[in-house]
Design a binder for these strands. Structure first.
Lengths: 205, 205
DNA sequence: TTGATTTGGAAACGATCATTTCCTAAAAGA
DNA sequence: TCTTTTAGGAAATGATCGTTTCCAAATCAA
């Protein structure tokens, strides 16, 4: 994956970093997604990232630092992917269909089994790690806000009825999308999940 | 919690077990729910269960054995709680409202933060532990089947329109309920989650 | 060049993990 | 009563964990 995070080299002193940060984080977030936080050992992470433990600790401080960086990278990449999916749709209603289809498309087969890093860390870490909890909270609030804005957009462009309660429906759709990522862990079929997301469009009637 | 699992004492030889199995498992499933599988250490489990490591290994074989027993216990208890919630409702539609309200009621405040053991183990263990994956699959299939049956019941008793596609709607509601448990990890309010579950009732229109 | 600074990387560190061992206690079968 | 069987429990075990240390390599400032 070659999505840019921050590519401006600020002319730092000392020996320059040899590895590609985004590529390393892409491998790290894959390991964290598959294994979860605790089951992902430093050995497995360093091997996947193509680095030694020393380099990892120099760059990220500790294991938690690797996770937080990988989490931010994950959010960044997924948001851009979702943005691209939504952009083409002509109105609020169709943008929300694209959004739900996007999540349905990530909730079947091998990609579905790999799971969502945000959902995984929410269940595994949110209760005892306040920093992670805050990040999850921000991420979910952002997702919910985007859904809310799309509902209101649809109500303005006439594709969604005015009587739809935007706030509660946004929370329902947020829950539905995160839930698909959970159900997708059990290996559903593409048809199964797409049909579910199509059924969920009724929330906007 | 004093829900019976199997209370028939089959007159076993040897020294009889001194601890209460269901009470011990209730503590174990609480620890697993809060911490997750890997972060829950044997020390923390034994302390919560009021046992020594020796007794635990005698009774369950290994840590995974404790988890599987706790998981089955969790499913057993939760299913009975849900059954009670649904029983009073007069028709399919209202039973499904009771079902969604039940999950909404488990998705806010401290109980919401504690999370769902099935959702947690699905995200943490399903990919690499085939036994757990099978258990999650069976559990989710059971949940989905129950929702499906309630939709069909509603269509027979006239409380749900015939044009509702039962299969895809069942998967959508399943995803929605599991998703509420994920969103509930971030500490939502009671009103927030109840409003979302009420909005989700539109899936049955 | 020289010194300061940062990275790369192998090896070693203490801590904690799940698990086993070994012994005693308590019950049933003979 | 005596053997067998199972549970309770403290202590020890080996493995693995995250992390640190130490040194060579590479860059910039002077």
């Amino acid at each position: 994956m070659t999505t840019d995070t921050i590519d401006i080299a600020p002319k730092l002193r000392g020996r320059p970093r040899e590895f590609d940060m985004d590529a390393a984080l892409d491998e790290a977030l894959r390991v964290f997604s598959e294994r979860g936080y605790y089951a992902a050992s430093i050995s497995e992470l360093t091997e996947a990232m193509g680095l030694t433990a020393g380099s990892v600790y120099k760059a990220f401080g500790d294991k938690r630092g690797v996770f937080l960086a990988a989490f931010d990278r994950y959010r960044h990449v997924r948001q851009h992917m979702l943005d691209d999916c939504i952009a083409a749709a002509p109105n609020g209603y169709e943008k929300l269909r694209a959004l739900m289809t996007f999540f349905a498309g990530s909730s079947w087969g091998d990609i579905g089994r790999r799971g969502c890093l945000a959902v995984g860390s929410a269940t595994e870490l949110a209760l005892f790690d306040d920093d992670v909890a805050k990040r999850i909270g921000v991420a979910f609030d952002f997702d919910e806000r985007r859904i809310l804005d799309l509902i209101r957009l649809g109500q303005e462009d006439g594709s969604i009825p005015k009587h739809v309660d935007a706030e509660s429906t946004a929370c329902a759709i947020l829950s539905f999308t995160k839930g698909m990522r959970v159900v997708g862990k059990t290996g559903r079929t593409q048809e199964h999940m797409f049909a579910a997301s199509e059924a969920a469009m009724k929330l906007l009637n």
